[in-house]
Nucleic acid binder design. Structure first.
Lengths: 163, 163
DNA sequence: CCAGAATAGTTGTAGCGTCAACTATTGGCG
DNA sequence: CGCCAATAGTTGACGCTACAACTATTCTGG
């Protein structure tokens, strides 16, 4: 990390981004773990299902929406299924595919966990920013995701095209 | 994740930040793993040592600079020591403390890994941003880190005070 | 000056993610 | 048709991180 290769502003931005990616997961996980017994990724999976029609999604689509590989999702969904929060069944239209559906129990867990989670996100991320900075973060996020996920394989569903 | 609790811009910013924290580690890790046999966190540890006087730091200080807990760092340094990249020795001034020092081998590894890593950071993070956005990211980062690491326990060393 | 609290660090364990290997189905095209 | 590539998903092993428990020093107030 030779400082001469990045100018002062670039280095400052980079150090902050690294720190955020190290610290944010812990902040999210510990609140959700304590209040709902879920990791942030597990919560996010349940939340994506809760917003889908029939509260059901194919594994591949769910993996995209949660920025994860299929292998990771498969392990997570197996554990969620063992806890009765989700159920899997073969997709009727395509025998290769698997559908994951939120159970009633899973739905009520997300519902009960959401308020405290949203409050936590507000407290640690949204509140400290001005509304102008929130908007800047959207633009910066789009620019970065275009490179971090070039084909839009994981983020195409909500990403705005670059101007 | 009830959308009604966050407005459109807030939700957009939040989804992008989540996606970045999921995707960035993989982008950094895979390049460094392939080119230097190091995880990004391991590289960062070596890089922080390479910039310190005597290429030596106390474990606690090194943990702060790398946004990590002492437990995590201890495991990582043990593995780096086994590979001959770092050496540990009891701190003379305080018998509780341990110093970690970069070996010659560790130094040459960081030196050889740095160019490709910096290029990767440029390609995926800095280049897609305007210089104005880089500056905005610094401000946004400071605002978030003030909440993510309230006491400045991990980030005080480089964080700018809020205006 | 010494008892208890705080600091510094290590270690074992359990849980999660990555990677590679694998099965099963579908789609394309010759 | 029939074969081969692509798609969809699962699984097992391995490595890394968080958490809790532990040792060992140093600091501090009575």
């Amino acid at each position: 990390m030779d400082a001469s290769w990045l100018d002062a502003d670039e280095m400052a931005a980079w150090l902050r981004l690294v720190a955020i990616t190290e610290l944010l997961p812990g902040v999210l996980d510990s609140q959700l773990r304590r209040d709902a017994g879920l990791s942030h990724y597990e919560y996010f999976v349940l939340a994506m299902l809760s917003e889908a029609p029939e509260r059901t999604l194919r594994m591949t689509s769910l993996a995209q929406r949660t920025n994860a590989t299929l292998a990771r999702l498969s392990h997570v969904v197996r554990r969620l299924e063992e806890r009765g929060l989700v159920e899997r069944y073969p997709c009727p239209e395509d025998a290769r595919a698997t559908n994951a559906r939120l159970t009633a129990e899973g739905w009520s867990l997300v519902e009960s966990a959401a308020p405290a989670h949203v409050a936590n996100v507000r407290e640690h991320v949204l509140d400290p920013l001005t509304s102008q900075q929130v908007h800047q973060l959207v633009e910066i996020g789009d620019a970065l995701l275009e490179r971090l996920d070039p084909g839009g394989r994981m983020t195409a569903l909500y990403r705005r095209e670059a101007r």
